[in-house]
Write a protein that binds this DNA or RNA. Structure first.
Lengths: 125, 125
DNA sequence: TTGCATTTACGAAAACCTTCGTATATTTGA
DNA sequence: TCAAATATACGAAGGTTTTCGTAAATGCAA
């Protein structure tokens, strides 16, 4: 089980693939370039590197390759989050949660969801 | 208000300074090198760069400089966490909390703390 | 005192990330 | 058909991060 540690750009592209599903480089690029000024070949190169790293796979049947994320969103979130908790919050997820809830807005509805989750966690014990 | 974006090594050194308070390079190095094989001058260089970036200050009265963190732990945690929430969790702190609580152990005592915090947040509204 | 240890400063190598230019192949439409 | 558009591959530049070697200054101990 190898650690997933995408760079900032790679994470952006993964997010696009997670949300869009299968994509050509062109499709990814159009979204990727919405908030940045980057050329097409930059996006292409990033995706090629991600391919060589095993972050994505691609169907090369057609001239225009089709890319797909090879790492799941859930697993990647867990890994990145886990690393942050370990590095920055002394391994305490709860300490991180306190920091997050203390400094970010949350709606009643969202707070309710967390309460529910807490209840579930307690039942599990 | 400038964004604090320490690198991985810088964050490690900041953590040492936050926990130890004032430190010489030697003191930081001894802890920093516990889990890695790095030479003394590597630690020194990192701290010099952090100084030039304004992440730490130093007292140069003595030949052996004394370093101190210039960014607070709380503020740095908020910034780093905020960026992760924005980049990875669609800006939803709650989604991140759900992920964190769902995949990391938490003691009853810790869960209790979170419940308390939730109650406080609800009262504030 | 003199030589060894410790410290800072500095430069530069190595690795990684981001970016783009160019070459080449393929498709398309006028 | 053939030129323009579009795709991939590749190399390399430029920036940042991490690492260390070496030089110079200072402190210490025999």
């Amino acid at each position: 089980m190898k650690a997933i540690k995408p760079t900032e750009s790679e994470l952006e592209i993964l997010k696009i693939l997670w949300e869009q599903g299968e994509c050509t480089v062109r499709q990814v690029h159009e979204i990727f370039a919405e908030n940045k000024e980057v050329g097409y070949t930059t996006t292409l190169k990033l995706m090629q590197i991600m391919h060589s790293k095993g972050l994505v796979e691609r169907d090369e049947q057609q001239k225009t390759h089709i890319y797909r994320a090879l790492v799941s969103r859930d697993k990647t979130e867990k890994q990145v989050l886990g690393k942050l908790i370990k590095d920055m919050f002394d391994g305490s997820a709860v300490r991180m949660v306190m920091q997050a809830l203390g400094s970010h807005q949350a709606s009643d509805q969202e707070l309710e969801k967390i309460k529910q989750l807490l209840a579930e966690l307690e039942n599990k014990k």
